[in-house]
Design a protein around this nucleic acid. Structure first.
Length: 153
DNA sequence: GCCAACGTTGGC
DNA sequence: GCCAACGTTGGC
């Protein structure tokens, strides 16, 4: 069982959007490293939902993998901003899993709080210059974060 | 295969 | 809005 973290700009798609949609295709990721992580996601694995480019930034809630990765349909749509002319149906380049809403944390767990927590110092998210929008999280980190969030199991 | 130029991410 | 960090592109 692996644990993950995905970033999203709340102005574009927030935890509240996910709560309303219940399930969404996590598409539009156009970075190879992130794509590879998306393909590794297994059914029912836990995904922390991070608000980037926000005021303040931080972890807003929890999602779960509802469907493992399949070819992102937007790569085939010439009118989509995520269109990729080099992708074909036989050889798709980009993949997306479906993510399902689990819960919104009682309050946003800010980046500042995460940085202040010593046991999270090795977390990928907190590394300088870490821009990856899909990241693995260790079980220990995950447990710590759930504990800090004040969310009930 | 190197690397400069350029584009994007994301914290501040 | 700025800018550091990083990924990608493309000329050579």
């Amino acid at each position: 069982m692996a644990f993950w973290l995905v970033k999203s700009e709340p102005e574009v798609y927030s935890i509240d959007h996910l709560a309303k949609d219940k399930t969404t295709a996590w598409g539009g990721v156009r970075n190879y490293q992130a794509r590879n992580y998306l393909r590794q996601m297994a059914l029912k694995e836990n995904v922390l939902f991070y608000h980037s480019n926000a005021d303040p930034t931080g972890i807003a809630g929890l999602a779960q993998v509802a469907k493992t990765a399949y070819p992102d349909p937007e790569q085939f749509n010439p009118r989509s901003e995520y269109f990729d002319e080099k992708a074909t149906k036989d050889q798709p380049r980009w993949f997306c899993p479906d993510l399902k809403f689990v819960k919104k944390f009682p309050r946003l767990l800010t980046l500042e709080e995460l940085r202040a927590e010593k046991s999270l110092k090795d977390m990928l998210l907190l590394k300088r210059g870490s821009r990856l929008s899909v990241q693995p999280v260790s079980e220990k980190e995950f447990t710590t974060i759930i504990g800090m969030s004040g969310a009930r199991r």
